[in-house]
């Protein structure tokens, strides 16, 4: 099965479970979790079920397209179900079956792995899912987001698409994976991988990036004060990506590093708090909607 069909299959599967299909969020980010469709929507009491593909940038993992396993940018298929349904594990295993993975022919295990993102004040408990020894999915019950307790609890399922594809297509080099029949990941992404790596490690303008970081940070602060949660959060994402670029270049000293992380964390906390207040002011609309649907 090629990657495109995998995406279509997963979308169909989770759509059938009542998930909204979203598109990737248009700001650079390191993981699907950071999309406001996960991070903000998993806050507060409103139900939320969503699935989307998220291109995820990890500048430090860039290898000029030379490493068979590591990428500047990989793809995650992200699912959020809030509150987590009682049969969430079964729903997940059914999705593997839909991808043609027969659990009886493999060894599938849920191995404890707790997730934490200090920058976003977020933490959860769960597993990494092993398919014949390979970690193919991160499965997490959110416990805390933006420093706030997550109630009700969201289940987050994050498939590493390239990982999973390398298993399904039995390929050892990520660039040989078929996106559609006849077109490989290498065909599409080799050039951007090479160029982004070159940019990240050699060409990026540190002074400009430092400046951008503080500009984004100030703007986030400023519009936070006006209660504009989503725009403020976009600037937090920009801060985070800019920080990752600087960090990958190795130009952030120790003291600066701790400082930068705690500054982003403080912003994320404020945004989380304001978001919930804002939703409350609006009367938690999705909660009402659910009641109406039940009637």
């Amino acid at each position: 099965m090629n990657i495109q069909d995998m995406i279509l299959t997963l979308q169909k599967h989770w759509s059938d479970q009542g998930c909204l299909l979203m598109q990737a969020y248009d700001t650079e980010k390191g993981a699907g979790t950071m999309s406001p469709m996960t991070l903000l929507k998993s806050l507060g009491p409103e139900p939320w079920n969503v699935a989307y593909v998220e291109p995820s940038r990890r500048p430090a993992d860039g290898r000029y397209g030379q490493n068979p396993n590591r990428l500047y940018q990989h793809h995650q298929f992200q699912v959020i179900m809030k509150p987590s349904p009682d049969n969430i594990q079964e729903l997940y295993l059914d999705s593997l079956k839909a991808l043609g993975i027969d659990p009886n022919k493999h060894d599938i295990r849920f191995v404890e792995d707790n997730w934490e993102n200090p920058t976003l004040g977020a933490a959860g408990l769960g597993w990494e899912v092993w398919l014949d020894g390979m970690e193919i999915t991160q499965f997490t019950y959110f416990q805390q987001i933006g420093g706030l307790e997550a109630r009700p609890v969201s289940a987050e399922i994050t498939y590493g698409l390239e990982r999973l594809a390398s298993y399904i297509q039995d390929k050892e080099n990520v660039f040989e994976l078929e996106w559609t029949d006849g077109v490989t990941v290498g065909d599409i992404f080799m050039q951007p991988e090479y160029e982004h790596s070159t940019y990240t490690f050699e060409e990026s303008d540190e002074d400009m990036l430092f400046q951008l970081f503080s500009t984004y940070e100030k703007e986030a602060e400023r519009i936070m004060e006006k209660g504009l949660v989503f725009p403020a959060y976009d600037y937090v994402l920009k801060c985070s990506h800019t920080f990752n670029l600087l960090d990958a270049k190795g130009v952030i000293s120790v003291t600066e590093r701790t400082g930068y992380i705690s500054r982003v964390r403080n912003l994320a906390r404020k945004i989380a708090k304001t978001y919930v207040e804002e939703r409350e002011r609006l009367g938690f609309p999705m909660l009402k909607k659910e009641d109406e649907n039940h009637e």
């Binding site: 009886n104 022919k105 493999h106 060894d107 599938i108 398919l131 014949d132 020894g133 390979m134 298993y167």
Partner: peptide, 19 residues
């Protein structure tokens, strides 16, 4: 492995790849 000895080759091959 968590299971019986059926398809053990598939399981072993997958694990070899990861290692």
């Amino acid at each position: 492995r968590n299971g019986d000895d059926r398809h053990l080759d598939t399981v072993a091959r997958g694990n070899e790849k990861v290692l």
